[in-house]
Design a protein around this nucleic acid. Sequence first.
DNA 1: AAGAAGTTTCAGAACTATCTGAAAACATAG
DNA 2: CTATGTTTTCAGATAGTTCTGAAACTTCTT
Lengths: 178, 178
Amino acid sequence: MNEAQIQSLRPDWELAREEFVAQWGALGSHWGINRTMAQIHALLMTAPEPMDTEQIMARLHISRGNANTNLRELIGWGLIRLIVKKGERREYFEAEKDVWKMFITIAKERKRRELDPALLVLKQCAEQTQTETAGPGKAFHDQMKELQEFVEFGMKVSDTVASMKHASALQWAMRLLS
Amino acid sequence: MNEAQIQSLRPDWELAREEFVAQWGALGSHWGINRTMAQIHALLMTAPEPMDTEQIMARLHISRGNANTNLRELIGWGLIRLIVKKGERREYFEAEKDVWKMFITIAKERKRRELDPALLVLKQCAEQTQTETAGPGKAFHDQMKELQEFVEFGMKVSDTVASMKHASALQWAMRLLS
DNA sequence: AAGAAGTTTCAGAACTATCTGAAAACATAG
DNA sequence: CTATGTTTTCAGATAGTTCTGAAACTTCTT
């Protein structure tokens, strides 16, 4: 069976899905996530059933190694989980579909990867210039301090939001927006 | 004068600054921003005076072309501005130092670059599957809708926060955290 | 108008990230 | 223990991004 025939057998929504997967991948690479990883995530997010490695390889035209690496990476992020069906040796994968949970997971992970190391740098730089009491040295120290406090503050907000249930977050946000 | 001599003449805080610039650059490349751009930004953010292209090239050991490209890019982000000193032809650059303003600028720009195109994709996919009324097609449509609403919601929150003055944002956040 | 001082552009070089494919490791069943 | 189906690893290939350096361009001065 050739591509065109397969295409014609595929229900309508699958076309939209294909589009979603492709575009999501392109977007991913705009924001520091690698294209394939984003595509796999999009694919699983819209899968009615858990999928195995072979299926993913086939749908995305990628190699086994690539699929495997990115699946592990996604598991590392906590965005998908491994499913073992009884009586089957093969591993299946399934994505978290709840949007709020997904958001929390991504927020936590980004905090860990982006904010934590930044904070470390800022603290060190602030510390090393403790003794400066005037002039540009003082100005530098103050700036590092300000940045540090801002980042710490952002982290607190992020933690608070992340610990909320969807409903209370919504309520809180409504208050903000009104 | 050799490197070591220059080094010894540099006041203490400059060492911390050097560290900050280097580390900030490394961080930048972790989150989708290119290394040089992040370094230039860090350098200008901690500069007591506006700097010109030559100075930046010398401090970071980069070529004129590279410096120029990334300076324009930073101007595009709205993170630095061009300063023309009277009676001088040379262009100087200065970074916004207020942390809150910097945050707003980055947030707006990221919204424009990350959220806007994502929303477009989601809307299209939701639209194309309007007619699905059951089964996996419906599930797909619903998921797109949920994502769309979530992103729109996030954008509203981001707009609201971005329009706040530092003081009122702080007040608002205090309420959240307590 | 010619020269000086500066900025911008861009083709190719250097570097980095990602992907492939085949081999090795692992797990299960017989 | 061996055969078989599956996952993991990793060296090298490929693709993508960033950087250089020199030439072209612009602007100002005399």
